[in-house]
C-alpha cells in the first residue's frame, strides 16, 4: 500500500505578502514500511517539501494523498493525522524547548491526547533509545548533541506515528554519533513498522539507509533510485 502519494505538487514560501515557489511539479510515491530518501544540495527544495509533508507549511498546490486520504491545501493537520506524522529535526540544539525539562516536553502531548500511564511510556521510550532514566528530569542544555537527538526521536515515537520524517537528523552530529543514531533508526524501523522519509545532503547516508530515493535539483526531481 502507498503511504504517501504526491502528484504535481508545488510548494511556496509565503512571507508576509510575498510568495516564492521553491518546489515544482513533484510526483512521487512512498510505500508503507520503506525508507524514502530526499537528497540534494542546500536550497534544492528538499526541506521545503518535507515541511509540507509535516503539515507545517500549508502553502502547496497539487494532489497529496496521505494514508489513503487526500490532503487539503491551505489547512494545517489536526486530530489523528497530526499524531501519525512526526518529525525529527536537523539541529538537536534547537528542537527542544530550552526552558522545559525533558519530562514536560515528552509528557505534554501525551496528556493532550488523554493517554494513561504517561510516565511508564516515557521510561520505556528512554530505554528504547538507549538513554538512562535519570536524565528524564534534566534540561536539554545538560545533554550532549547525540543524547538530545535521541530525546527528539523518543518525542516523535511516543505519539506512535506511522510516518516519521527525518530532516537531516545527523548532519549536526559527530561522525561517531551519527553511526549510533543511524543504527538506532534502523532498529526502530524494523521494530515499529514505520515508514520513514529522510532528507540529507550526504549521499552516503541515503545510500546506507534508504530503500528508495530521489535526488532533487532546483525544486525538481533530478534522479530516482531504488535499492534492492
Amino acid at each position: 500500500m502507498n503511504q504517501l502519494e504526491l502528484k504535481k505538487v508545488s510548494v511556496s514560501h509565503v512571507q508576509g505578502l510575498q510568495s516564492n515557489t521553491v518546489v515544482h511539479d513533484i510526483d512521487l510515491t512512498v510505500e508503507a514500511g520503506e525508507c524514502f530518501g530526499l537528497v540534494g544540495p542546500s536550497g534544492c527544495g528538499k526541506s521545503s517539501l518535507l515541511w509540507v509533508l509535516a503539515g507545517l507549511n500549508p502553502h502547496w498546490e497539487g494532489e497529496i494523498t496521505l494514508f489513503g486520504q487526500p490532503l487539503e491545501s491551505g489547512k494545517i493537520f489536526t486530530g489523528d493525522r497530526r499524531r501519525r506524522v512526526q518529525m525529527v529535526f536537523q539541529d538537536p540544539y534547537a528542537s527542544l524547548h530550552p526552558k522545559h525539562r525533558l519530562r514536560r516536553t515528552l509528557a505534554e502531548p501525551l496528556k493532550l491526547l488523554g493517554l494513561s500511564d504517561i510516565n511508564d511510556r516515557i521510561s520505556e521510550g528512554f530505554k528504547q533509545v538507549g538513554l538512562t532514566e535519570n536524565m528524564i528530569d534534566r534540561y536539554p542544555h545538560q545533554l550532549s548533541g547525540g543524547q538530545r537527538q535521541r530525546v527528539a526521536i523518543i518525542r516523535a515515537l511516543l505519539l506512535e506515528p506511522k510516518l516519521l520524517l527525518l530532516d537531516e537528523p545527523t548532519s549536526a552530529l559527530d561522525m561517531s554519533v551519527q553511526a549510533e543514531i543511524l543504527n538506532l533508526l534502523n532498529e526502530l524501523k524494523a521494530n515499529h513498522d514505520l515508514t520513514m522519509i529522510m532528507v540529507s545532503h550526504d549521499p552516503d547516508v541515503i545510500d546506507y539507509m534508504c530503500d528508495h530515493a530521489v535526488t532533487m535539483k532546483a525544486g525538481r526531481i533530478d534522479q530516482e533510485k531504488r535499492y534492492v
Binding site: M175, S176, A179, N183, D204
Partner: peptide, 20 residues
Amino acid sequence: QTLWSCRPNIAKRGQPLPTL
C-alpha cells in the same frame, strides 16, 4: 578504528555501523 570505519556507505547496507 571506530572513527575510521563508522562512516556509512552503500557497502554497509543492512549491517549495523560500528560504534564506540
